[in-house]
Design a protein around this nucleic acid. Structure first.
Ligand code: DCP
Length: 1140
DNA sequence: TTAGAAAGTCAG
DNA sequence: CATCGCTGACTTTCTAA
């Protein structure tokens, strides 16, 4: 329904096939473990750089006083045994007191707060560090932890959650301004005048307020409080001037909430990153290289606390305009998603992830951790420079020397445009413009800025070329976004260095060319890759190189624009210390601000000096604390993730949502549900849990948000409920509406809605059921027989099915699965060429013209098809080519409808395409059974779809859940444990031997110059086979190497045989159920259709059935004869009588 | 205490 | 004309037993 991005270029598809080609080549990552050396290299670096250039801040002083031995000899500093928690806490309190006393001695200004023992709760203004200094300077004590044991006289808090309100009921809870005031007048003032307003609320306050609401609140306080706010601000200023010396840190101070820039609650937290000048490398060779970037201009609260958008308000006054241009319009979602850059970004990422996942699981792959045993990792972060602009400038080279931005707004000079800039070039950035800046604001900063429209197709096209290249060369690959990838090149680099001839001569020679001028070999490789990327895409990319993902990302910052940078271990410490904590990937505005309020600094070096891991954990939680501490030290144990099992699928919208009444709201929720249903069904997933998220205009927010049709300040509400696993729109609505309704939000105040499915399971497509329930003969089926007979002809190969356009498809839809499968199979037999069917299946949801293109070759009426319920249409189109390979192409098509030229251009059948990938290629590298790729959900969990679908439904659910859990567990383990698993010496030796073989095999397979019989390749296969074969449940688990799949592309004959034996054993004494016979025939016809046809299975099965029925009842013999002739006929037609 | 729901954060 | 503030993963916090 949502019109996905359109491809105007048929070129795109040829690229897609070349991508697939590359996919077949890729040498796959297995979860690689961080090389121990990497960690050690970081560990051994001095962890607390001394900040000699920094004037001492209070916290830093506290830290400085920690190190001298003088006060470390007291009891407070005696060590504790592991587990003595109580003692530890006592010691800790005492230790902090010692530090406080030390500060007080030096700074005592007055005794206004004498006798006060104060606990500071949460984020405050002035920040924690500043309050703490003030309290101690005026004779008070700061209680580090509120644990009921110490005597606490006051709690300082800006706002409190209901739970905290309850917990603090017995305390004097004051605003931070109370401290400021006491310090100002140098005496203790009446605390009740500064009582924290949260304490007055009797529990019905919203659970949380978005930060901009805090900002808004701050401005709206009453007069006497406004005074306090002023004081608070002054203290902040003071703190900054006096204690903070954050020369390059100012742009994030509190005034950022008072100026223009950020646009959304999310954007408020996610303001554009500001590269620090210090790290901007001035030696850029590009002639157009801009001067160092100025700090970005800070966001304006006028944007979200100020007046609403008058223009929008006047438009909104017209009911007809509203009906036409807002979510009240039933066509709104389609148009919206077609133009939303963020929607495209998300969709592309997901598509690309699927492509890569498929590529990396389909190729032979030596275990990466084995390869890397004893080898330092080399990770590269590859990122196009100002991607959208870069792509557009290919056709606008006259603008290369001008400031350029991509956004929706047209060229003009209005400074009131609220259109967001998706991407701007580095010249525009030199004016302070950033990705995400509103165009109006950008024009104030840079009146000459040129705007260019979006070219969504071109971006994805470029991206496919990019990934085609990367999958060909990288050891491992993770999709970070449409324009950004992480690659592991450890092995590639090693083979280049050792002179092993690469399959990529271009890469090899470019590498050799850059080697003499590059500081490191990795750098030369990066430059070579950059050359190739530029050749392939006509766009410049930058590459950061590091020993882990985090370091590679950090290096990219310095590499940009149009450069490469290798962050080497010896330079880490000096590189890290001056960074802003915001520069670390995963640290956003919220964390950054929390650091600032807590420690009074945002600099990595200073944060490390002022705190430790335990405090970080206390402050940010167990996981965040730990990872933050690691990140501050440039440690990162994450591995590249080629495939990840999806855990949710949903659709969000929070723009243009302006509804006037409940019927409109109902219709809107319904449409979003339909959208989710469609997305889930394309993924062939059903969900057992549904959640909705509704954004409600904040009470005091203007009706029309400052951003045109934006959501403005909102409170967000989540609700979720369980449901019977489904992806049907109506079922989703059935679950979603009560949830939305329960929130009792006036429809006029709804500003955004998200619906998503969780607890996903693979959809049981009906075409799969003959396999599933194959031998089963439920009695219900017998009861249905009558209706089957009356509904249509008996399901025999000879029965007549009218042309599809004349079938009542709704009736067909209600037939029992077996009947439908049969009819669908018959429809499919009319298909002239598999390729048409394949492409039809690729884009089953495209309306109008393209639907017709799909329908025609199937003998279906496009109009009828268009009117079908989506799942049924999907199913019918899918039935036409159930065994077509390359589900990825299908996924791809789901976001890029075909152009008319597409079908013509790709005359080759998909199967042929797969086989023509690389004629010279070794069999083991050939594309694996097409079926594997058709089940991304299963694939991500390494479940063999064949086996999976052969299981009874209830067992399927268990198996899936089990694998899902195992997958999650494994991911967690990978993250937590980077070190190599402990092994016995013997195991290690064996492992190393295997690794050597794998390594060798890897290189040979890469070279594609070795035949199947190559002893090394065979040895490598054996290793992989062995390790898989031992698990008793291995049959449920796809081998990491797919060669077994190559040898037995389909269900093992034995499985078929057992199924048929059971079937015959159950009812061999009587006539077989016609539906089951039809199923059996369908299964065999599917074998015929398969590429290559599973001839062994077919003849084996026919022989087996012949054997079984040899002495059986005539009905069975008849059944056999029917199936036999039908199948043989099909085979003859299909493969020109080779079997006969 | 703990499981599950809700809320918050982050990236591009 | 405006304008297209998405999406999924992950963590923490809250709540109901
Ligand atoms: N707030 C944002 C951020 C990014 N993008 C889109 C446009 C960008 O071109 C693309 C890639 O984002 P990057 O963060 O990689 O930024 P650029 O590629 O534009 O610039 P650079 O990577 O050189 O900093 O994503 C967007 O639409 N909105």
């Amino acid at each position: 329904m949502a019109a996905p991005p359109h491809s105007s270029s048929s070129q795109l598809f040829s690229d897609d096939s070349s991508l697939l080609e590359a996919l077949a080549h890729v040498v796959t990552p297995q979860a690689s473990k961080a090389a121990p050396q990497t960690v050690h290299a970081v560990d051994s670096a001095p962890s607390s750089p001394t900040l000699t250039d920094a004037p001492p801040s209070p916290a830093a002083e506290a830290h400085a006083r920690k190190s001298p031995a003088s006060y470390m000899e007291g009891e407070a500093y005696s060590g504790v045994e592991f587990g003595e928690w109580g003692q530890y806490m006592r010691n800790k309190r005492a230790k902090l007191r010692v530090q406080q006393d030390a500060i007080r001695e030096r700074h005592c200004v007055s005794d206004a707060l004498q006798g006060c023992v104060i606990y500071i709760n949460g984020r405050t203004q002035p920040p924690y560090a500043e309050l703490r200094r003030m309290i101690m300077e005026h004779g008070g004590q700061v209680l580090p932890y509120l644990d009921q044991k110490g005597p606490c006289t006051h709690i300082v808090a800006s706002s409190l959650t209901p739970r905290k309100v309850e917990a603090f009921r017995r305390y004097r809870v004051v605003l931070p301004s109370w401290i400021v005031e006491c310090c100002r007048v140098r005496k203790k003032v009446d605390w009740t005048l500064w009582r924290c307003p949260s304490m007055d609320v009797q529990g019905h306050a919203p659970l949380f307020e978005k930060r901009e609401e805090h900002a808004a609140k701050a401005v709206q306080r009453t007069a006497w409080r406004a005074q306090s706010v002023e004081n608070d601000m002054r203290s902040v200023q003071l703190a900054m001037e006096k204690a903070e010396h954050e020369s390059d840190d100012v742009q994030q101070s509190t005034e950022c909430e008072l100026n223009d820039g950020a646009h959304t609650p999310a954007a408020f937290h996610q303001r554009t990153a500001i590269p620090s000048d210090a790290q901007h490398d001035a030696r850029k060779q590009l002639s157009s290289s801009p001067p160092p970037l100025p700090p970005a201009h800070s966001p304006s609260s006028a944007y979200y606390t100020g007046a609403g958008n008058q223009h929008a308000a006047s438009l909104m006054a017209s009911p007809s305009w509203r009906a036409e241009h807002t979510a009240a319009n039933s066509e709104f979602l389609n148009g919206y998603y077609a133009s939303s850059r963020l929607h495209h970004l998300s969709t592309w990422k997901s598509n690309l992830q699927d492509l890569v996942a498929q590529a990396t699981t389909e190729s032979a792959r030596p275990p990466m951790d084995a390869l890397l045993h004893g080898m330092a990792r080399v990770i590269m972060h590859v990122d196009f420079d100002s991607f959208f602009v870069n792509v557009s400038l290919r056709s606008h080279s006259e603008l290369r020397t001008k400031p350029v931005a991509v956004c929706h707004a047209r060229q003009g000079d209005s400074v009131s445009s609220t259109s967001e800039i998706a991407s701007c070039n580095y010249i525009a950035r030199s004016f302070g413009v950033r990705n995400g800046t509103s165009l109006g604001h950008a024009r104030k900063l840079c009146p000459d800025i040129h705007t260019l429209p979006y070219m969504f197709d071109a971006y994805y096209d470029t991206s496919l070329r990019f990934y085609t290249l990367l999958t060909r060369v990288a050891d491992a690959l993770e999709v970070a976004s449409v324009d950004e990838a992480l690659i592991d090149v450890s092995c590639l680099l090693a083979s280049l260095q050792s002179g092993v001839c690469s399959t990529e001569p271009a890469l090899h020679s470019a590498y050799e060319m850059h080697l003499p001028t590059s500081p490191t070999a990795a750098h030369a490789l990066a430059e070579a890759l950059r050359d190739m990327i530029c050749d392939a895409t006509q766009c410049t990319a930058s590459i950061g190189i590091g020993a882990n993902v985090l370091q590679a990302r950090l290096a990219t910052r310095r590499a940009k624009p149009n450069g490469a940078f290798h962050l080497e271990a010896h330079a880490l410490e000096s590189f890290m210390a001056p960074l802003q904590v915001r520069d670390l990937w995963g640290v956003g505005w919220s964390l950054c601000d929390r650091f600032h309020s807590w420690l009074g600094t945002r600099k990595v070096g200073e944060i490390i000096a002022r705190t430790d891991e335990a405090h970080l954990v206390r402050q940010f939680g167990p996981k965040m604390g730990k990872t933050l501490w690691d990140k501050l030290h440039a440690r990162d144990t994450s591995t590249l993730q080629a495939a990840r099992a999806r855990a949710s699928v949903g659709a969000h919208i929070s723009w243009g949502v302006r509804l006037s009444d409940t019927p409109q709201l109902v219709a809107f929720v319904e449409r979003v549900c339909a959208e989710v249903a469609q997305r889930a069904s394309r993924l062939e997933l059903v969900g057992a849990q549904l959640s909705v998220q509704v954004m409600q205009r904040a009470k005091d927010a203007p009706t029309e948000a400052p951003k045109f049709l934006g959501h403005g300040r909102c409170t967000t509400h989540h609700r979720s409920s369980k449901l019977h696993p489904t992806c049907e729109a109506r079922a989703l609505m059935h679950a979603a509406w009560p949830l939305v309704q329960s929130l009792r939000i006036p429809p006029q105040d709804v500003r955004g809605l998200a619906v998503s499915l969780q607890r996903l399971q693979p959809m049981l497509r009906r075409m799969e059921q003959p396999r599933l329930a194959f031998p089963v003969l439920p009695s219900a089926d017998a009861a249905l027989e009558g209706s089957e007979a009356s509904a249509s002809s008996p399901p025999s190969p000879s029965f007549h099915i009218p042309p599809a356009s004349q079938l009542d498809l709704d009736t067909v839809a209600q037939l029992p699965p077996a009947m439908r499968a049969c009819i669908e199979a018959r429809i499919e037999q009319n298909v002239m060429g598999a390729s048409a069917a394949h492409f039809a299946a690729q884009a089953p949801h495209v309306p109008s013209a393209s639907l017709e293109a799909q329908a025609a070759p199937l003998g279906l009426d496009a109009e009828v098809l268009a009117q079908l319920p989506t799942p049924l249409r999907h199913e019918i189109l899918h039935a036409a080519a159930p065994q077509t390979p390359h589900r990825t192409a299908k996924r791809h098509a789901s976001s890029s409808p075909r152009t008319p030229g597409f079908g013509q251009k790709c005359k080759k059948s998909p199967a042929r395409r797969a086989h023509s990938v690389s004629p010279a290629k070794h069999a083991t590298l050939a594309v694996s059974p097409p079926k594997n790729s058709a089940f991304p959900a299963l694939h991500a969990l390494a479940i063999d779809p064949d086996v999976f679908y052969a299981l009874p439904a209830h067992v399927q659910a268990d198996v899936y859940a089990e694998h899902m859990a195992a997958h999650t567990h494994k991911t967690k383990l990978r993250k937590e444990k980077a070190k190599a698993p402990e092994r016995t010496a013997a195991q290690r030796r064996r492992h190393e031997a295997e690794a050597a073989v794998q390594y060798e095999a890897n290189i040979r397979l890469r070279g594609a110059r070795f035949p199947d019989s190559d002893p090394v390749v065979q040895e490598a296969k054996k290793c992989v086979g062995e390790s898989v074969g031992r698990d008793p449940r291995a049959s449920l688990v796809s081998a990491p190497s797919t060669h077994t799949g190559m040898l037995h592309p389909y269900l093992p004959l034995a499985t078929f045989r057992d199924a048929v034996r059971d079937w015959y054993a159950t009812c061999g004494h009587a006539a077989p159920n016609p539906a089951d016979v039809a199923r059996f025939e369908c299964v065999l016809l599917a074998c015929v259709r398969a590429q290559p046809p599973a001839l062994g299975t077919i003849s084996g099965m026919l022989a087996w059935l012949a054997y079984l029925v040899e002495n059986g009842v005539p009905a069975w013999k008849e059944a056999y004869a029917r199936v036999d002739s039908a199948v043989k006929e099909a085979v003859v037609a299909h493969v020109r009588g080779r079997l006969a």
